[in-house]
Amino acid sequence: MLSHLVVGQTLYFGDSLFYILSFVLLMWIIKIFAWGPVTKMMQDRADKISNDIDSAEKSRTDAASLVEKRQAALSNSRSEAQTIVSDAKSNGQQQRDQIVTQAQADVQTMKQNAQKDIEQERQDALSDARNDVADLSIEIASKIIQRELKADDQKALIDSYIEGLGKQHES
């Protein structure tokens, strides 16, 4: 029917069969070697890219929340540090005051003690000196008396004593 339809060329229908068979075979070979693996790879890549985009979005939000947290922690720690510093300052102030008061009290006590001691020492020294003077004077007196009270003197003394007795009686 079509054999001489086109530009007088003879058509060989065996060729038609040959082309159909070779085309189907070619499709099969391409499917096995290239089409299957390549389209699968392309699909995998598309999936991977969409996954990557999702995970990138996720990590971006994660990073943002982390930054927020860090910011909060930072401001928190700043105020904390401020509290610590002010606490330490007031503590120091308190301690210093305490130490100064303590020192003043100590000094006062020490001063009083010292004065008391000095007074005591003075009293002791005075009484010692008085005793010493008494002893010394007694010693001196006894020494003088011992030397004076020789025989004559004793006699004179006794005499005078007796004379005195006589006078008393007379009166």
Binding site: Y12, F13, G14, D15, L17, F18, Y19, S22, L25, L26, I29, I30, F33, A34, P37, V38
Partner: peptide
């Protein structure tokens, strides 16, 4: 029982092999 034209079969085969080679070596 079918008549084939040598030119068509040979050139068809050559193209067939070329396509297979291209697809095979690029994949």
């Amino acid at each position: 029982g079918l008549t084939f034209s040598t030119a068509n079969v040979v050139s068809g085969l050559v193209v067939f092999l070329l396509v297979v080679a291209i697809v095979f070596f690029t994949s």
